[in-house]
Amino acid sequence: MNPLLSLSGVDAGYDGVPVVYDLDLTVGEGEVVALLGSNGAGKTTTLLTISGLLPRLGGELTVLGAGVSDGRHRTERRTLDLARRGLAHVPEDRALFFELTAGENLRLGAQRGDDEAVETALESFPRLHELSHRNAGLLSGGEQQMLALARALAGRPRLLLIDEMSLGLAPIVVEQLLPTVRAIADDTGAGVLLVEQQVPAALAIADRVYVLRRGRVAIEGNASDLRRRRDLLEASYLGDIDEDK
């Protein structure tokens, strides 16, 4: 079976200057893959390049079964095209529409007339039910993150990219949200690529893990193995600091 997402030798970066080099990565159906690494390792850059918000600088990128070969200025078309084919990207800033109500945010996430998907998304986050008439800008940080996830879900994604879901959230909220992500993958068969700083929480739900260090893959393996080998992970994070000294 073909993976939903495959990167082979991909270079990614800004203004033609790569910050991620030669990245090989796959995400299969129903799989939760965690992308870890310290700040500045290139995790967010990788996600932006996959969804087309950044032009790919080199290598081969296959998303949802179609190869991507775009020039510098064609990325917007690609983002649109991928979004319509089932890629959902929850960016770091959540990209919510603050002046629209939570319900309207959800409606925009769903396909035209797909009210059922909105309902299903709401079932995953019951708290949003009572908030659906409130402007998104007035929700708390945790509620906003729920809304961002729910909005992505409402589009019935086949591949879900989630960037730093735990950013600024209380640990207890993260503990509630991450299992929901696992459930999405299990229930809908969507593949999930999860960028996360809360390493233990991410390891708890992920199938496989990639650890980036300075734009290159430092460790790659099964989450269950890495749960037992915390020393490896620590070395890859701390090694960075040693090098800086």
Binding site: S51, L53, E76, T79, L80, A83, R84, A88, H89, P91, A95, L96, F97, F98, E99, L100, E104, N105, R107, L108, G109, R151, G155
Partner: peptide, 18 residues
Amino acid sequence: LATRAAAENEKGVLLLGH
């Protein structure tokens, strides 16, 4: 709705396929 959303956050509407 999409127009109002785009006025506020173009990246957001783009990521949702509008």
